[in-house]
Design a protein around this nucleic acid. Structure first.
Lengths: 250, 250
DNA sequence: TTAATAGTGTCTTTCAGACAATATTAT
DNA sequence: ATAATATTGTCTGAAAGACACTATTAA
């Protein structure tokens, strides 16, 4: 590769041009359902199709900040603003098959974001074209975004097992039941309330008590729950494993 | 991003040129030690420094095949050849900070490879410049490769916990002790022989018996061990967890 | 009052890890 | 013979999951 490197040093245009973009699989929970942020494409290719939000990486920008910028643009939140700082953002993986974009070679670095429930982008005056869609209602997406979304969902589901990131879907203070609802929405299955409660409190650093109590009980009755905030653990030990599915193993 | 997309469609050169490369963190076990494949750079920048093997992604090539090609070139193995097909290759993450290469914007997709013990590249006639170095003897690397290597090692250590990929470091048939030596080398700590043995055999699909027995016992005595091959599991259930380090958690 | 929810208690099973024991083989 | 290694057995404690129970609150 030495020759190629030499060439590239002095003549970047000796290589076929490549565009580098970021795409974001942004997830949130609305009405107890896991939702992803999508945009509707205006132009060809895939005009009228839904796609993941994304765009080109700018000149002096890191990949991470490009992803955060795209997310901020589409959710109409300003960087530095409260809600955006709570968002968890991590790199997912990179997609670069030739032909994934018919126009030119596009290498896309995909990111995964967990956001607390945000105001609907369309509600504001300068409405963006993005919207939250429950993941089980998302059909085919533009480009290879169907696969990107699937990879993001896989990652999200397993992240909830061994990290405390479920709290990133909630506001700063939350009840154990709200936390359980996050797991139920992401994993698509209900968890036993009593066992979940005991488990969460037993994992060191997962949550810490605020001492306060929720203003009111549940929707249809029940005592007022205690409030917690995220703890200082970066990993859950022991992990909170999903019920094993045999089919995932082989 | 609609306008930008439009521009890019018709004028790729409107954007600052970006090079896309792959870098490979290739790991193997030699003499019981975890080693990484490195090359020595001939030219500036970082002339004389060691670096991860890598190079530019070619025009009609997927990212995966670029990584496999780079690995084949540096290890002097031909694609389609036995040993290379056994290599496990997965995408690690992508590094794209502006300034990580002083010449131009370079976005590098890093890969992680697990290889069985291969013949030394320098032994052959058309010796390549690559060599295996024990990971605990690797100092500073060129570019941001020190961080890339560290990320690769982290990933490798955790992959061994919940996947059967330790077998990718071994030849097709192996003993439980050899498998244990892989874990010891990658995790940097010895495991209890008896408990490890029982654990491996108890995880469904981790290994399957060949019925055969090793030709001879251990180096310094002991019975002839039974031979196993990799099973059909893609994930280990239950996982084979490292002894918990408190410092990793918070 | 009724039903739902928060939180706790108990029991069983699984599993990790400590430790012991036995058999087999290289030197 | 000696020491190392392969393999199996046993025990303890941690933890997951099933289930039951009590107390509290919205409607």
């Amino acid at each position: 590769m030495t020759d190629e490197e030499f060439l590239a040093t002095y003549d970047p245009h000796a290589y076929a041009p490549v565009a580098v973009t970021v795409d974001v699989v942004a997830l949130t929970i609305r009405d107890g359902r896991l939702c992803a942020l999508l945009v509707e494409r205006g132009e060809s290719p895939y005009a009228g199709w839904r796609a993941l939000p994304g765009g080109f990486v700018r000149e002096a920008e890191t990949l991470d900040s490009a992803a955060l910028r795209e997310l901020a643009e589409e959710t109409a939140l300003r960087p530095g603003e409260d809600a955006l700082d709570q968002v968890h953002l991590e790199q997912l993986r990179t997609y670069g098959d030739p032909g994934r974009d018919p126009r030119m070679r596009v290498v896309s670095v995909a990111y995964l974001a967990f956001a607390p429930s945000l105001p609907d982008p369309r509600a504001g005056g300068d409405a963006s074209s993005a919207f939250w869609v429950p993941v089980d209602e998302i059909g085919e997406l533009a480009f290879d975004h169907t696969a990107v979304l699937a990879d993001g969902l896989d990652r999200a589901r397993s992240k909830l097992e061994y990290t405390p990131l479920a709290t990133a879907f909630l506001s700063a203070e939350f009840t154990i039941s709200e936390l359980r609802a996050v797991y139920a929405a992401v994993w698509g299955e209900d968890l036993h309330a009593g066992n979940f409660h005991r488990k969460v409190l037993s994992v060191p650093g997962f949550v810490e008590s605020t001492g306060a109590t929720a203003a009111r009980g549940g929707e249809r009755g029940g005592p007022k729950a205690r409030l917690y905030r995220a703890g200082d653990a970066r990993l859950l030990h022991p992990a909170l494993l999903r019920p094993t599915r045999e089919e995932d193993v082989r």
